[in-house]
Design a protein around this nucleic acid. Sequence first.
RNA 1: GCCGCAGUAACUCAGGGGUAGAGUAACUCAUUGGUAAUGAGUAAGCCGGCAGUUCGAAUCUGCCCUGUGGCACCA
Length: 641
Amino acid sequence: MSEKITITFPDGNKKEIDKGISGLELASQISKSLAKESVAIKLNNQIKDICLPINSDASVAILKRDNEETLELIRHDCAHVMAEAVQELYPGTQVTIGPAIENGFYYDFARNEPFTISDLPKIEKKMHEIIQRNESFIREVWSKDKAIKYFKDKGENYKVELINDLPSNEEITIYKQGNWLDLCRGPHMVSTKQIGKAFKLMKVAGAYWRGDSSNTMLTRIYGTAWATEKELEQHLSQIEEAEKRDHRKLGKEMDLFHFQEEAPGAVFWHPKGWTLFQSLINYMRSRQDKAGYVETNTPDMMDKSLWETSGHWDKFSDMMFRTEAKDDKIYAIKPMNCPGAVEIFKQGLKSYRDLPFLLSEFGKVHRYEPSGALHGLMRVRAFTQDDAHIFCTEDQITEESKIVCDLILSIYKDFGFENVKIKFSDRPEKRVGDDAVWDKAEAALKQAMEATGLEYTFNPGEGAFYGPKLEFVLRDAIGRDWQCGTLQVDLNLPGRLGATYIGEDGNKKTPVMLHRALFGSLERFTGILIEHYAGHLPLWLSPLQVMIATITSDTNDYALLVKNKLIKEGIKAEVDLRNEKIGYKIREHSNSKIPVIIAVGKKESQEKTVSVRRIGSTKTKTFKLDEITTSLSSEVKSPIE
RNA sequence: GCCGCAGUAACUCAGGGGUAGAGUAACUCAUUGGUAAUGAGUAAGCCGGCAGUUCGAAUCUGCCCUGUGGCACCA
């Protein structure tokens, strides 16, 4: 008689079964249809192949294809099928790795001639073929020697490297589908047919072997895969939606800014864009004033020696712009505002009574970002930070950090960002200062985080070169994450640059400096807002709030009267008196995302009313002239008023 | 920086070894109209830059610049 084991189902039911029975056999004991639909099992909370024997008491859930957790298997299987398709179509191509990722999968190939998008339809077609072949995924355990010999003979050098690097105690598993096989940890579904049809190859890209830029570059093919074709379509339309929101496209349509060849990574702000930019600065300035900051401004260029003292030259000179004039000096264009802030702090004797000392600066910094990193407003070489440096004692770190966290979250809320994540980064490899100082700084920041009670995740080795940091990541209206604010504890720079204050005991002490930026880069934040609001900026941020469009030229005078009335109320209004039909005007101003369009014709001018149409709506509402000004003037106020 | 793709009128894009194309915008004229495109006409381009191949290059080749999708980077 065979040995029995006890398994527990998700609903709590238990069952005695023969030891060694596979998930599939178990499923078929329950029902034939279940066995047919099952693709994998979850054994003690880990997804496993359904054909593997169950050898001890365990909790077991049988996964069907429509299970949410199966999606990862579909994607991973899809990656294998793609690799098979590629090797069938392009012999001599080496396979490397191909994981499931968010929304899909990729596979990295090594091939002399890289793939281009025009290859994708062919590969996709072959994949459908392989899926139709209904090849079973068969798991085999191989010895290391056998695996190395096999892949070496096939010329799969990358796989050989992977196997060589596997820990010796790790089982080497191979997954076969038809005549093709791959080194793989698994798990996989039962056969290729279960992948279905809801996948699409999306793009090709270069990617370094093992993510290291000193290694060869491979060709990566990205695909997206879903359980159903409906989900695939949804995903594709989401991508379309994101493209519609692209701030580079909207920025052009809304006449906010442009870039040009002569200034890569630097923004030309047009009048409307600059108005928006200034609205953000005014908002932030007011919030900071109320929080006790004093605003400063420091030189854009300073002698190289200052940057040597601060440590920037040593760590980041590759990323710094430098310039010279007739004298022999080399000036660096500032990549950060902190040394300037320290120099201001150093003027005059400071006492412990002056601390915390909060210096803010809307400083424009220049960094030579790698060319491939540039991306619209999101990643530029010249940008404005809403920067501030808080000089304080070690004892004040916790309290001051807590205040900064509260301020950031409250500010993000004003823009509709309620979902904010915090990341904690500690000492990087490339850094200044003793480990003892780092211990202290990291402990203080941690303590501050405990004090706020906010949740955070840990990001080892990602700190600034002078101190540990917090990063604030906000989620936009379509679920994308953007890193914006930062708070850094710095026990190094003030000392390096010779900042001191007189302590309670009459002795000179070195202050702690907290670096913090809330929007981060104003340029980038503007880009995020454009995408977050899909160009439909809230009234208070809109550079042009109201367009008054006439229906016939008889009402020009009345339109100007309305405009003047609005402008007196502090509302940004313009008139459109052109000899065009009202439908034409409405269309044009709607396309350029003007939040309020007022149409005035004979009726309005006689009755002293206005017909108001808000962006995103096709309805119109008639207001008395007095009423519209009062209703709008409250809405155009920024959250700080 | 690396790999791929792209650069043609102000904008969006088609074309492609033999006089450069469309739609929109602009300008002119007519039209004064009721909530997402009134009609007609006019003008507009060193086809990103530099070399090469060719009788001839916007088109083919090479290099460079810029953008773009990724990778790497992001104090």
